[in-house]
Design a protein around this nucleic acid. Structure first.
Length: 587
DNA sequence: GTAGGGTTAG
């Protein structure tokens, strides 16, 4: 203890004598007893340990340098404990540890991450009052805060103002922040303009800025443009890093271009960029989504072979893959496997399983798990509730579903569009279409009221509940609102007309929809053919059947059965018999 | 060698 104090005083003395605080600080820093522990925390962050260390540092006399406090709090920020970090700054302030522009910037960042960008700007004002001048990082942090709060327009305005008033000279980070904001709201072309602007100026874009745009292009389904930009940056001598490659691999996988994704993986390794756990997770997830969990398992083995540890994302993707195939036992095995490895499943992990149980109508297991995860301290989110609602409806318990929906709202969880789709669909299916309509009318959110999917559910529901007039009303309302009916809407309406015996209207709608650029699909044809068969309007059915087959659609199993059973044997020579013959041979 | 921006799961 005395040794350290003595050492500290000595270094200060040396520093003063040399009139160079930097050397003093550096010496103190390297011999500090806290230094080692901060370093340890940086490598293996633990909140409790960090807080303990902070207390010790705060009590130490003389207090450690602001440098070390900042380092420690940065560790806490990296752990996303923003509120904690802010509290620690407050404690430091109360103890009289001086603040700096650095601590201010970190505080502003914490407020921004907590979605309290207004407090960030308040701190900026304080900063001015105390005579500090904001740094480039201060402004970048605030711009990013606006982006995080989905206020990209204001972020861009702030950026423009900084340029216009020459308040700062933007660096790569600031450009990157703005480019990221533009991409986030889908203005990728504006982001590309800014990137081009950078290329022509003195602050050249680096891999970070290119990666943001490449990722955004991939998400905009413009993978080829992304590949072009990737080629361009390489030409300019900017080397792609693992994030660039991950974005491209993700983009290729999303559009079924797995072979190219595999080539990309090979390429990156050839140029010395090592794939990470994230790279493999992208592949694992892609395989799982397509239903080939076997390939996903091979990818997991491959990552393990390279010494990369599968994480909670890897296992959750695998579980989801198995659940999608209905292989819940396998999903349970994966869950047990990850827990044996001391990996904590999160709400997304459990959502896969709950959804799996619900889809398999094992509602009791789903209910049990729903309770169990809450006992473990996990909080069900809107997706958990959506799965439960669907499961409850499908297991024939609409009352329990309604109750669960009420509970969800009481907990302050906002239902999303899927919640309402599930709810209205479930209610209609249980002959509660009046209730469903009442609920729909009570919706206040404009966004929800303009969801064609909800209209489809209600129109279909009213029709099946024997209220075709209400279905027609809804369709008119939808058109009146200027919403665009999709193929499902038209298909349901065709079915509505047929059931009312208005076959002329049904056929007219079939032509109408195509004129409006909405192509009929296999379901549309099956619906209308079945209705004609029900009415024994064989000639009409025949014409449509030929039309659908010529367009590459085929009758579904019920249509096929109706054809077999209903076509009178007297019409052996009819084209429809030939079709049946052909189809029977295929089957 | 302390602060600000980019990739992965339902």
């Amino acid at each position: 203890m005395y040794y350290y104090i003595f050492n500290y005083l000595l270094t200060l003395k040396i520093a003063c004598r040399m009139n160079c605080t930097r050397i003093g600080l550096r010496y103190y820093y390297s011999t500090s007893p806290f230094n080692q522990r901060i370093l340890l925390l940086k490598n293996a962050p633990k909140v409790d340990d960090a807080l303990q260390l902070f207390d010790e540092m705060l009590q130490r006399q003389p207090p450690p340098s602001i440098f070390q406090f900042t380092q420690l709090i940065s560790v806490i920020v990296k752990m996303k404990q923003y509120s904690t970090a802010l509290k620690l700054f407050e404690q430091m302030r109360l103890m009289g540890v001086p603040v700096s522009i650095l601590t201010m910037n970190i505080s502003i960042n914490c407020y921004c991450r907590l979605n309290q960008v207004a407090y960030g700007f308040a701190l900026l004002a304080t900063l001015f009052k105390q005579g500090y001048s904001p740094s480039l990082a201060t402004y970048s942090t605030l711009i990013n805060g606006l982006v995080l709060a989905d206020r990209v327009f204001e972020a861009v305005e702030l950026f423009k103002k900084l340029l216009r008033d020459k308040l700062c000279d933007p660096d790569q980070v600031m450009y990157g922040t703005v480019i990221n904001g533009l991409c986030k709201v889908g203005h990728t072309s504006k982001a590309i303009q800014l990137l081009t602007f950078m290329e022509s100026g003195s602050c050249k874009p680096c891999v970070e800025q290119y990666s943001v745009v490449i990722d955004s292009l991939c998400k905009d389904k413009m993978v080829d443009h992304a590949l072009e930009l990737f080629a361009k940056m390489t030409e300019k001598g900017v080397l792609a890093d693992v994030i660039t490659y991950n974005s491209l691999i993700h983009g290729l996988c999303n559009f079924g271009r797995e072979t190219e994704a595999a080539n990309m993986l090979r390429d990156m390794e050839e140029v010395g960029v090592s794939p990470t756990v994230a790279t493999f997770n992208i592949l694992v997830n892609s395989f799982c989504k397509q239903g080939s969990v076997k390939d996903a398992e091979i990818a997991v083995q491959e990552m393990a072979r390279r010494g990369l540890c599968p994480n909670v994302i890897t296992y959750s993707a695998l579980m989801d893959g198995y659940c999608l195939r209905g292989e819940i036992d396998e999903a349970e095995k994966v869950l047990n496997g990850m827990m044996e490895k001391d990996l904590a499943p999160n709400i997304i992990t459990y959502n896969s399983l709950i959804n799996g149980y619900c889809k398999k109508k094992q509602i009791d297991k789903a209910r049990h798990l729903f309770q169990e995860i809450q006992d473990k301290g996990l909080i069900p989110d809107v997706i958990t509730y959506n799965s439960m609602l669907q499961g409850l409806f499908e297991s024939g318990n609409p009352a329990a579903a309604r109750e669960r929906f009420n509970k969800m709202q009481a907990k302050g969880l906002a239902p999303n569009i899927y919640t309402y789709r599930i709810l209205l669909h479930g209610m209609c299916k249980n002959s509660q279409c009046s209730d469903a309509l009442a609920l729909f009318r009570s919706l206040e959110s404009k966004e929800l009221m303009e969801d064609v999917g909800l209209y489809n559910i209600l129109i279909d529901g009213c029709n099946k509940c024997g209220k075709p007039n209400l279905a027609v009303d809804l369709f008119d309302k939808l058109l009146l609102k200027g919403l665009k009916p999709d193929v499902r809407t038209y298909t349901v309406m065709i079915s509505v007309h047929c059931q009312q015996g208005l076959f002329g209207k049904a056929k007219e709608l079939l032509r109408n929809m195509e004129e409006k650029g909405c192509l009929a699909n296999s379901v549309t044809y099956n619906v209308i053919v079945k209705e004609f068969l029900k009415e024994k309007a064989f000639e009409e059915a025949e014409i449509l059947l030929k039309e659908m087959i010529s367009r590459g659609f085929s009758p579904d199993s019920t249509t096929f059965e109706m054809l077999l059973n209903q076509i009178p044997s007297t019409r052996q020579d009819s084209p429809i018999q030939t079709i049946i013959q052909k189809l029977t041979n295929i089957k």
